[in-house]
């Protein structure tokens, strides 16, 4: 995953990362098309990037229909692996399966882009041949989904302070990081996505590893505060300091 992110950063400015990501994913997983879409509780709310041709066509189809593997993956928080759309796609998503058939797509694999309670979107893989996504292809798909999580979290952040460095921090899966994100969300009264970004910004500003910062939060050696103007950002974070006031509430 770190390698994927490094290649994106090297490829150009952050706005171009989604386009590079879907293309890199298509090549690494041996599929025909790949799309990256945002999903909210009403369904697909926007297509962020798609490979030209089949990828773009089917992303637009799911967006306009409001049905397909994407809504299902997003709702359940699990990947939806459909190695043969002709087999059970028709009963699950009749209109989508018909449209996919017309476009020559026989298999679809959709990965939800979620970090616990943070639901960002989905990564859709489409292939003209039937059959499962296995072995190294599956590993690559999951790695690209992790990279997509980091990219979307980064692009949705208000402050760009941490820049491209520490992008991988946003896809850290260690328990302590997510416990700390939950604590910081309460401390700053923000959602867990903002809390995760605040942890990363703090780590960047203090030149520390995000896991160490998270460890300090969980051990209650470090608290996050509002920066004064009501926004919660890395720059406003203060150490509790010695003496009174540093104790947990």
């Amino acid at each position: 995953m770190a390698g994927i992110l490094a290649a994106l950063v090297a490829a150009g400015p952050s706005a171009s990362w989604p386009d590079h990501l879907v293309e890199a994913c298509r090549r690494a997983t041996g599929v025909t098309g790949v799309g990256l879409a945002l999903v909210d509780h009403t369904g697909v709310s926007g297509v962020v990037a798609a490979t030209p041709g089949v990828g773009r066509e089917l992303e637009d189809l799911q967006f306009s229909l409001g049905e397909g593997p994407c809504t299902e993956a997003s709702r359940s928080g699990r990947p939806v692996m459909c190695p043969d759309l002709a087999d059970d796609g028709g009963t699950r998503w009749p209109a989508f399966a018909r449209g996919a058939g017309r476009a020559g797509v026989s298999a679809a694999f959709t990965f939800p882009l979620q970090v616990g309670a943070i639901a960002l979107g989905v990564l859709d893989l489409y292939r003209t041949e039937t059959g499962p996504l296995r072995g190294p292809y599956l590993t690559e798909a999951v790695a690209h989904a992790d990279a997509a999580v980091a990219v979307l979290l980064h692009l949705q952040g208000r402050d760009d302070e941490a820049g491209a460095t520490g992008l991988a921090d946003l896809a850290d899966r260690r328990a302590v990081v997510h416990q700390a994100a939950g604590m910081v969300a309460v401390q700053l009264d923000v959602d867990v996505a903002d809390a995760l970004r605040a942890l990363r910004a703090h780590a960047w500003a203090h030149d520390r590893a995000i896991g160490d910062v998270a460890g300090d939060v969980v051990a209650r050696r470090l608290r996050f505060h509002d920066s004064g103007n009501g926004t919660a950002g890395g720059a406003g974070v203060r150490h509790p300091g010695p003496g009174p006031g540093g104790e947990p509430a």
Binding site: S76, G77, R78, P79, F111, P112, Q114, V115, G116, A117, V142, R173, A175, H178, Q179, A180, A181, G182, M183, V184, A185, V186, Q187, V192, V218
Partner: peptide, 21 residues
């Protein structure tokens, strides 16, 4: 199943943090 369970695990860590705080 595995990916779903792994995401639930992250969710539970976040909830532990929220409750702890």
């Amino acid at each position: 199943q595995l990916q779903g369970a792994l995401n639930s695990r992250v969710l539970i860590e976040q909830a532990k943090g929220v409750l702890a705080e």
